[in-house]
Amino acid sequence: MQGTQVKSALIPLDTLREQIAQAIATAKAYDVPSVCVRLGIQQAVADGDEQEAFGSKRMYVRRRILSWDEADLLALAARVLREYASEDLENTVSEMTVHAAHRVSALVRCDVLKALNPLETLFGEMPLIDCLSEVFGTSVIQDDPVGLLGRNSLHGQIIQHCLRNDDWSHEELLRKCGALTCSQTRFFALLTKLLHPMIRRDAEQGELASAIDAALSRDGFTVRQTGMESGYAIYGVCRAQAGVAGTMKNLIFASIGEKPELVFRDAVNNDVEIVRHADKVLVFDRFLPSSGLLLWKDLRDWYAELQGISDPISAKEQLFRRLRQAVLGARSAGEFAVFQGYYERYGGLLGDRLPALIPQVYLHYDPYTRVGRESCEILKKTT
């Protein structure tokens, strides 16, 4: 978080309140009361509210959410982030939700940093200061805005020990930047940056991915290829899952008629072919994000490309109708209630952060080869 170090997922609720208030305080003072109404902080604008907001926009918001519990504050934070950009708030929400249960220990972070020392350069040919600022925040790296600290500032020390001279190891540099105490979101962003093909490619990229993966595995995390860019691998950090390693493929779902008939063309690589009723189902064939979680926006963007829809709102509406049609076709009142209730309750609340609820997922294993299937079909027709 920019200018803020997070040492654990146990973040005080007052920190969350403060960051919510600071994000809303970027609005004009005379708009703050109406913003609070729109965000559900207060029911209506009362006499004197605008004058109070002019006194302190931040305190105006804080006073109205002092008694809110964690669940309500997190829901409010999600609404705020849809209107106002705040790196601090976004990182805090991530720490309290996505990264709350599974943590990378300081010991493992140390092991990861040591694995970086053999690298010739940390960020390849990219500017060191710019890359560090992108990962840790400009206010952390360029921490001397008025020039009073000189060489004593972190920015000055980096220039002295990493650019003019070369007497800091990569590990020492990243420790100085806060890699051992920063948010887990930021720590993973550092690793993703180090493994990006703009920084390193091919053998060097693969070797570093393996070294980081070996260290993270102690805490149940893994480095995994999450996508491709211009033919180059994109890596991310995610929770290690039990079972066969590899990328997700063959997500076949949302039938609106007969169930699809599937065969494995390559059992080792899990390559599946739909041999009948392919026109009745949807097939999501993209990489999952590094979190391992398929979000509604990912599904929407894929569907928009599949159908040639340029308007995201239209794509969202058409995709929802298509999924709803599949659920209705199942003729299950319980399934429909869960599907409809989930998107009604959480769609507006979480927006782009909404995990996709996938209806009617199919995975049927057919051991027959194509010749075997054709023989069986002929046999059925002649008996």
Rank of each mutant, 00 (worst) to 15 (best):
F253Y: 13
G372K: 02
A278R: 13
G48S: 00
A209P: 09
F187M: 13
F188L: 11
G3R: 10
L149V: 00
F253L: 09
Y303G: 06
Y343E: 01
L180T: 11
L154Y: 06
L180D: 13
D31R: 10
A23N: 07
D88I: 05
G351Y: 03
S290C: 10
P260Q: 04
V338L: 00
V237R: 00
S210E: 12
S183G: 15
S183A: 15
K380Y: 09
E377K: 09
D111E: 14
E52D: 11
A179N: 09
V361T: 11
C177M: 09
D167Q: 07
R201Y: 05
R276M: 07
Y368V: 05
R63Y: 01
A23H: 01
A233L: 07
S230T: 04
A75V: 02
V281W: 07
E120K: 13
R200A: 10
K316E: 15
R373H: 14
L76P: 00
V112L: 06
S210I: 04
L282W: 03
C182F: 03
H364E: 13
D14W: 03
D202L: 06
I20H: 04
A242C: 11
A278F: 05
I159T: 02
P118V: 01
L328C: 14
R373I: 12
R109T: 11
Q184T: 14
P359H: 02
Q42D: 03
G329T: 01
L328M: 13
Y368S: 15
W168C: 06
H161A: 02
T382D: 09
N117M: 01
A78V: 00
A233V: 07
D266W: 08
Q340M: 11
N152Y: 12
I358G: 01
R164I: 11
C162N: 06
A101P: 07
C177T: 08
K316P: 01
L251T: 11
R286K: 15
E171N: 03
L119V: 05
G156R: 05
Q157H: 05
I212K: 10
D213E: 12
V35A: 07
D271K: 12
A101H: 14
N165P: 04
L81Y: 03
V146S: 10
